[in-house]
Design a protein around this nucleic acid. Structure first.
Lengths: 232, 232
DNA sequence: CTCATATTCCACAGATCTATGGATAACAGA
DNA sequence: TCTGTTATCCATAGATCTGTGGAATATGAG
């Protein structure tokens, strides 16, 4: 009765898992995937955002599509890519968590880069939720507008980092600001907080970012900002 | 004021993430990692379990160690490898979830292989917990004994699949059996359930396996079985 | 139908990865 | 110290992956 069944099939199984592993073996593919977890984008936009040549970006996207971690939607002459499901974002999040936990280099880079400035005393999700309900903070989404529109923390105001100084006047100086971005490896929110503080405002970062907020099943809103003026 | 800071550092960051991605690009490395999430093992044991030559297995393990997803412990002339932390198991779990969700091939293989037999009507973790407390099921850990000793569901009985028939008499025929193994991609529990049923017993699989039970922070016990006889 | 735009396909050179056998290193026991 | 066991290191041939420019496709506008 000693039989070792399904040897070939077991190998096939791991072969399939490796199809997905292949997606995260290349730095640029990870970068692409992280972007796609925030919002869908055209090939051109993805190439620009990651600094890849168009054909190279397309090639990477094909690899990811073959592994079915991304899907596409055609609109006229352009093709929009997006993450194929929530599991994709969870996987990318788990990768980031693992890297932060095990690779001292990652924390070191984040420190060098100045993420440390805003890093201290981050706001927890539950604290933010409570204080938003109490109405004594402004939540700032500092990602690009497309990403805000694809899904943001309910009640958050869109103020892309690049417009921070120009639109500073929109923010009530007496209300503390909580900024968030793409996640713990994204630098937008820490930079925003640093700049806000140097402008004399009270500001902190949210722990993690949008994907984690989603994964915690906290309230998310999609669509553009209602009124552009008076986000008071 | 238009400056694009830290370009190099950002690339470094993704380079680091890719170090971890590299670990899961090779089917055998995924297989090794999954084993290491269950219990520590010597190089020799790992090579045997995965069907790799010793030197090849060692080479793969070096890659994984460089990425710091595994660590080692020396005991006399042999070296035991183990997963470097809980994040590693979460990452592997996320990979498996993603593969199951997105790759129809994976589900197909699981079906072909007969995992489907025990697949239907799996027991949920919370149901199991309740029924264990009520005392009307036997929980069976069908993994190899080392893995049982490294951590098992509290109250579970160790009965490795290979000894199932020989030790069937130890199980009370009137009590339903719930079997579990390494996770949703592991075939031990489904096989055990199939065999138990063909022996006329009532038996079901637990949803998922040990890592997921741990991740749910449910009670885990380590160490060998107290009394070998009378696990009634 | 023709043109312009956005993507994908293709072929290829250069880089990287993998499996393997033989040599080397670390250790325990006699 | 010598020997056997377990694991790592090393060199290498063969396979796979990447980036790239140029050609081919698909779509929408005239």
């Amino acid at each position: 009765m000693e039989y070792e069944p399904w040897l070939g099939e077991r190998d096939d199984l791991y072969e399939q898992l490796a199809r997905i592993g292949k997606v995260v073996v290349h730095p640029k593919r990870i970068e692409l995937l992280e972007l796609l977890c925030q919002a869908e984008r055209s090939v051109e936009a993805l190439a620009a955002a990651t600094g890849l040549k168009l054909t190279t970006a397309s090639a990477h996207l094909q690899v990811m599509r073959q592994a079915r971690v991304v899907t596409t939607r055609r609109e006229g002459t352009r093709v929009y890519y997006r993450a194929a499901g929530a599991e994709v974002c969870r996987f990318v999040t788990a990768l980031g968590d693992l890297a932060r936990a095990r690779l001292a280099e990652v924390e070191q880079i984040l420190r060098d880069i100045g993420a440390a400035d805003g890093e201290a005393e981050r706001v927890t999700r539950s604290e933010l939720l409570a204080r938003v309900r109490a109405g004594d903070v402004v939540v700032l989404d500092v990602r690009p507008p497309e990403e805000y529109e694809a899904g943001h923390i309910s009640g958050a105001v869109s103020l892309p980092l690049e417009h921070l100084e120009a639109r500073l006047f929109e923010l009530d100086p007496d209300v503390e600001v909580v900024a968030y971005c793409r996640g713990p490896l994204c630098l937008l929110a820490p930079q925003a907080v640093a700049r806000l503080r140097s402008a004399g405002r009270r500001a902190r970062c949210l722990e993690d970012g949008m994907p984690e907020w989603r994964q915690a099943r906290l309230p998310v809103t999609t669509g553009a900002q209602a009124s552009r003026r008076s986000p008071r």
